[in-house]
Design a protein around this nucleic acid. Sequence first.
RNA 1: GGGGGCGUAGCUCAAUUGGUUAGAGUACCGGACUGUCGAUCCGGUGGUUGCGGGUUCGAUUCCCGUCGCCCUCGCCA
Length: 599
Amino acid sequence: MKQRAPWQRTHTCGELSLAQKDRDVVLNGWIENHRHHGQLIFLDLRDRYGVTQIVVDQEAKGLAAGTFDTVRRLGAEDVIAVHGRVRARDADKQNKNRSTGEIEVLATAVTVFTEAETPPFEILDKAEANEELRMQYRYLDLRRRPLQEAMAKRARFVTAIRNYMAEHRFLDLETPILTKSTPEGARDYLVPSRVHPGKFYALPQSPQIFKQLCMVAGLDRYYQIARCFRDEDLRADRQPEFTQIDLEMSFVEEHDVLDLVEGMVVHGMREGFGIELPQPFPRFDFEEAMETYGCDKPDLRFEMKLIDCTELARRSSFKVFAGAVELGGIVKGICAKGAAEKFSRKGIDELTAFVAGLGAKGLAWAKVTAAGLEGSIAKFYEGDKAKELCAHMAAAPGDLLLFVADQKRVVHKALGDLRLKVGGQLGLRDPKQFRCCWVLNFPMFEWNDEKQRWQFAHNPFSAPVDWSVQDFTRDTAQIRSRAYDFVMNGWELGSGSIRIHRPALQAKVFEFLGISPEQQRANFGFLLDAYKYGAPPHGGIALGVDRLVALALGRDGIRDVIAFPKTSMAFDLMADAPGGVSPEQMAELQIASTAKRPG
RNA sequence: GGGGGCGUAGCUCAAUUGGUUAGAGUACCGGACUGUCGAUCCGGUGGUUGCGGGUUCGAUUCCCGUCGCCCUCGCCA
């Protein structure tokens, strides 16, 4: 039988109920609250599992000598052991808000492990202190129930993912944290090498190349809950280090990866958060997503699709419409169901300003009534024309129609963002609803205006949809890659592709982008070499764990679901990192700082 | 790198056109209290108004700089 020290808990603070009535128990935990009534003291004792009320009664039989005086001096966040007996509470003394509210523990003795100074902020469910202070004392913030729950659910989710991956024959393989800098992509975090003076490791932006090498190695199915590092400016949904579910599979095509990941996400959401995702996840061609939703990461919690009105507009007496079409542009609209009454003239002016900020020249609008249309385009659409337009837009009385006429890119950007804004204002973006989809066949290259050259849209290893493409200079913008994104509620949560596994094709892609054979060798030489020795066709994906957990828990940012996050200046307020190092350390690494104001 | 917001007691906030000794709630400390559960009641401690400078008879308030936090554009293959 297992040894238990006298002070060690027999139960947690969340598990006692009438089932343990009259049992002698020991609880360990933090004092959340204390209420003094002279000869009677109540303590709320908290641990990860819950809160149990402790009663210390000076008159109680069996109360150890001195205990009452000890307890009288205790305060919030002191850590104690309570010895006592479980007692049923009278009906009028029960606390219905607590799972342990039907019982309490009548103390016989108390052991004080540590007394706590008054914390810089109170440990309450509702975060009352500002985030800066809470990050500085993160270990106190983490005591709060919402964060404890977030951490527990995140851990449960990750465990579910691991189980799922193991069941599907994936090997959890570790890849280097100290690796090599590559010029493309995000800025690297660098680590100086002591034994190679003047040389640096880079922390991985992702395990991309290593996981592909695992495929060349014949390991067949790789996954890792991998930490990734990117030295770019932060946002609410971006931290300098973040976690990905990274995976790669051999001898597969898109649907193999998509099917597997779909199952994984469904399993993880169910086991981790109790969320049932509607299946199957729709799969959109990139082009289709852009045409229908105006963006490559559609929020499918509501419809309000972009409807092409270019042909109707072409023969319109409304010059803005006809004129835009004449200049090679398009006209599209959205129909906000039942929204006519929810948007005043002022509300629509605000939407107009919104799309203007996105590059649109204006916003044409109409409210649908039983009699016809009202609004900026009403006089151009009367009688049958109004009916025709409404039929085309599938609009009914009470609906609000919004149109943008411009070049395709502008229309999609403006209406895509407008759709999200209007959907949000109509309460259609319910954080408790979860809708996933896939977007496939992204453009392979995109034009970088600043650098005046083509660059990878996804990553350098994504295969073109058409294997036989020989000349990337022709119709470059039309070339599609076998890249896919996983999207939930309008958030891009994952990105992957079927890779190039033929060295000749890979070299051609690099060549097109102006990466010289020397640079190729220097940066990716080991991958290109590896491909010479028999690379299987393969593909994979990486999913952002932090974003996924934040979304599942309805949090606005990922800091809430990371135990020890950094500020938007990539600073760790608790650890005070980054920090200075001694001249000796610098000398040993043979590096010097050119910073004007060190530290 | 650009734009916006915030910074006053341990914490959350208030303070009139620039005007007396910078207030309140809470926490904390002391006291009362045997059924509370964010206990209640009485009393008390607690301030470099982020930091530096300027304007002024006088600055929490106005101006300049600086630091920190948050949001955002650029950036994030």
